[in-house]
Simulated scan of single mutants.
Amino acid sequence: MSENNAKAYSEPNRTPLYDQHCKLGAKIVDFGGWALPVNYGSQVEEHHAVRSDCGMFDVSHMTVSDITGKDTLAFLKSTLANNVEKISGTPGKALYSCMLNEDGGVIDDLIVYYLDDNHCRLVTNASTNERDMAWLNQLAQGHEIIITERPELALLAVQGPNAIERVRSVVDQEFAESIASLKRFQGVFNGDKFIGRTGYTGEDGVELIVSADYANQLWEALLERKVQPCGLGARDTLRLEAGMALYGNDLDEQHTPLDSGLKWTVSLTEERDFVGKANLEIPAKHSMIGLVLEDRGVLRGHQKVFSNDIEIGEITSGTFSPTLEKSIALARVVSASKPALDDTVNIAVRNKMLTARVVKYPFV
């Protein structure tokens, strides 16, 4: 490697659980500047473990930030497309929202936990961290708040029909009782440990925000309880089967939430103003549709979608679904030409036109 190339290349960041992945022989890749496991052998087995039993994911590359101060709620009301007032007054309640630019494009999608009127916690994407923090700090001018990133914390997601029972079996009694009391989309502190009944798989489960040492203890304890470690590959097939958007694929700054199937996350009915609201066009120019491939092949991002020989859009996310044993996809199409459910469209795959059925998602 030349001296110039050596300077340009930097090792990806390692999560607190990196050594655990190496011990298990995981295939590690550079994912947005982080060394993360793609799989531990069989991606399909990992996928099925989450659907039928329980799996765990290292998601410590995600960014945790605490917003504190007397203007916390006012700031988030004006910053997020969804209205944080929906969850205010219920400690630990979580809200999914997009954060928009002035044009209405999506800078990031995130989870916000309401802790009290002077404290909320954000969980944002790793790939957008630099842009997110710059935007949040810019918008914070004039508000009495402090934004504090928490890079010392690890994030561990445990997902599947048996996830909650399995986590409760490896923590102390007080923590186990607080986990049992959680409702969906709600979190709770136990000392300095935070756990939310949230996830990115379509299954029940929890996400833990804890110290690096405790994350390693949990990982090892859950391994002993036969919880399947899962990598980025299974995470992607699971979230797509559940119809969940992925930033950079289904969401970006060139499209609004309304163009991306996320109208339900935008609060437009009240007088509240928020960044980007003025540029949200109704009806939206684009719509999202689900596709199931009828022919042999695999649907992938950026493949063009045709209806009656006219190009109407493109696939944003596509994969082979281990649960359905068919290829599935999300596609963004021009609203005016949106095909009806049960219609078929054609997908340009290499030099062929393959047939896909339009379906309602989530797929599973």
Rank of each mutant, 00 (worst) to 15 (best):
Y9D: 13
S10H: 11
T15E: 14
Y18F: 14
D19L: 12
Q20E: 09
C22V: 10
K27G: 14
K27N: 13
F31N: 06
F31Q: 05
W34V: 04
V38H: 07
S42R: 13
S42D: 08
V44H: 14
E46K: 08
H47T: 07
H48I: 07
S52H: 12
S52T: 14
C54L: 11
S60A: 08
H61D: 15
M62Q: 14
I67R: 13
L76V: 06
K77R: 12
K77F: 00
N83K: 10
K86H: 15
S88W: 05
S88E: 15
G92F: 11
K93C: 15
M99R: 01
E102I: 00
E102S: 00
D108R: 06
D109R: 06
L110C: 09
D117G: 15
R121V: 02
A126I: 05
T128L: 04
L136H: 12
L136C: 14
Q141D: 13
I145F: 09
I147N: 15
T148I: 12
T148W: 09
R150W: 03
P161M: 10
P161K: 14
P161T: 10
I164V: 06
I164Q: 07
I164K: 03
V167S: 13
S169D: 09
E177V: 00
L182F: 05
K183R: 11
K183Y: 05
K183N: 03
V188Y: 05
F189L: 07
G196Q: 10
G196F: 08
R197S: 07
T198L: 13
T201R: 01
D204E: 13
V210E: 00
V210I: 02
S211G: 03
A212Y: 01
D213S: 02
A215K: 01
Q217E: 09
Q217F: 02
L223C: 14
R225K: 14
Q228R: 13
C230D: 04
T237M: 03
E241Q: 03
G243A: 10
Y247I: 15
L251F: 12
H255R: 14
T256M: 02
D259I: 00
D259L: 00
S260C: 07
G261C: 07
G261R: 07
G261K: 06
L262K: 02
D273I: 11
G276Y: 02
E281I: 05
L291M: 04
V292N: 07
G297I: 01
R300K: 14
F306E: 14
F306A: 12
N308A: 04
E311C: 09
F320D: 05
S321H: 01
E325F: 01
V334F: 03
P339H: 05
A340D: 09
L341D: 13
D343Q: 09
V349H: 10
R357V: 01
V358L: 03
K360P: 00
Y361T: 00
F363G: 00
